[in-house]
Amino acid sequence: MMKPTQFSRRRLLMGLTAGVGTMALAGCDGLAQNAQVDGVLRQTEKLTLRGQRLLFGRQALAQEFSEADLSPVFRANGTQMPDSDAYARLLEHGFADWRLQVDGLVQRPQRLSLADLRRFASRTQITRHDCVEGWSAIGQWQGVPLGLVLDAAGVRPGARYVVFHCADELERTLDGSGRYYESIDLVDAYHPQTILAYGMNGKDLPVAHGAPLRLRVERQLGYKQAKYLMRIEVVDAYSGLWGGKGGFWEDRGYEWYAGI
């Protein structure tokens, strides 16, 4: 997974401090670590979420492109190979033993192989990946709509969020907080372009891009596109998970709703 810059937060901070004059980025970082300002930013983020959905609708699609628009090079951002013996063993056997665990607030917990996922109706889409670091690339993704997997599991009343647990660990920690995870709400989970991708540009998903399975949630920034998926957990809140902000980078100060 990528290590995003503080661009989105800095942009908000510069707006909050426009009357004060030019501020160095280091000063913005200092503000981002201030609890009071952090609270203001979180409220602004909620307004962004509500405003986007009000203006464009919950089912509005991200732009899709043609094969002629595919980027000749699509950078593999962040982790390109999880530092995990368990993952290495799965890769060695072509992910034949890999299973996607689907649990939490569901009626029928699932353990799905790649073959199982391929039996669902698939969706292919060519979209632009926008990285918070400032670069973009267009790629073709094939996979199963997340909503179909959730329906197979049967989402229970009271569920609000879907949490994605990944194989890569960016920081070695005893409590597991260094393991990459992400979350989205059920609105985005059931968006038609939100897919669990097992293919890229007409081939099996490469390891550097998240094999065997990654999330594509096309109306959000790149760090929400979790790679190396191992488990999907349906929850009523994410506040009890590690840093309580809903994702690896969110726990370190970045926006939970990274809408574009």
Rank of each mutant, 00 (worst) to 15 (best):
V163E: 13
L70H: 01
G51K: 10
P72F: 04
A60F: 07
S66R: 05
V149H: 03
V37G: 07
L146R: 05
L41K: 14
F248I: 11
G19W: 02
F7N: 01
K46H: 12
L49N: 09
Q52W: 13
I260V: 15
Q6H: 08
W141H: 13
R42P: 08
R75A: 10
F74I: 13
R53V: 06
W242S: 09
H129T: 08
G247C: 12
A24D: 11
R216A: 13
G244V: 04
H165G: 04
L25A: 15
L117E: 06
H165A: 13
G199D: 02
L174S: 14
E233Q: 12
V102S: 06
A76C: 03
D204R: 12
F120M: 07
A60K: 04
L221G: 15
P157M: 06
S113A: 12
Y238W: 03
P82L: 13
R53A: 07
E45V: 10
A211W: 00
V132M: 07
R128M: 08
R89S: 10
R179D: 07
Y223A: 07
D97N: 10
V106E: 02
R58A: 14
D85A: 15
V144Q: 00
Q140G: 07
R9T: 12
A86Y: 11
K224N: 02
Q142F: 03
D251G: 09
L100E: 05
Y180I: 04
E171C: 09
A121C: 01
D85S: 11
R179H: 03
Q101E: 14
T194Q: 00
L25I: 13
R128L: 02
A208Y: 06
L31R: 11
R179M: 04
A189V: 10
P157I: 08
V163Y: 11
R219K: 12
A258C: 10
L25G: 10
